[in-house]
Amino acid sequence: MTIEVGIIAPTAPVEIQPDAGKPGRGRGTLPISLVTIAVIIAAWSLASVYGVVSPLFLPSPLIVLKAIYNVAVNGFVDSTLAQHTFASLLRIFAALAASIVIGIPAGLAIGTSRIGKGILDPIVEFLRPLPPLAYLPLIIIWIGIGEASKITVISLAMLPPIILSTAAGVKSAPADFVNAARSFGASRLQVLLYVILPSAIPSILTGTRIALGAGWSTLVAAELVAASRGLGFMIQSAAQFLVTDIVIAGIIVIAAIAFLLEILARLLERWFVPWAAHR
């Protein structure tokens, strides 16, 4: 008896490890990724130190860091880094608000109504594959080079993922959920508001996350063309004067913000729809 217990005991804890049975999850890839980043930065440093590439084209990481500090404190082309970033974020969130207000009802219409689908499908399918920069000039002709045109272009880029994910979420609402509500006497509107819409929220949030990504890249491109403030504008101005360190600094800030937005979106998903993981 005692011998058996002695044999079983050490193996038992292994089985209750939470990540057991999920290959690749138990041991994360984070250390490997961190090493990769370190190697890239080291190679970049060495290339700068030994003058493999002219500093005019590739300033060292240290100079880029100094450039970030400089722009943050002293600013570049009349605005500090915070002001550029704020200008960009304001546009993205204004566009996000607009595309949510338009996109979710549109997605509901596509997902629930034959007429809605008939009307909206061709519009969404026309818009979806277009690169936003292709219609940016037209938008500028129509509504000028102010904030409105940039927000419009970003919204147009964000709309298709939000509309399509809403429509997909609506269609994925379990039939039993809808039938249950109907058997308790729910009207069509009540079914839509209390059953179909909540069922679709995980999908809508995923669509919003994708839209944020699409919007962010469109934003930077839109600012390259026409703006007097913003991260894209900062990069474009720096490039014209061949201030490469600020160009690279801007790229790093843009990447960092995109990364943070992604994390924020995932946190929102976990916070808003904790039940999605338990379906």
Partner: peptide, 15 residues
């Protein structure tokens, strides 16, 4: 509402 249904997969709303 006069004929309420109980489903095999409970059909409770997880939200």
């Amino acid at each position: 509402a006069d004929r309420a249904v109980v489903f095999q997969d409970d059909a409770l709303y997880p939200w």
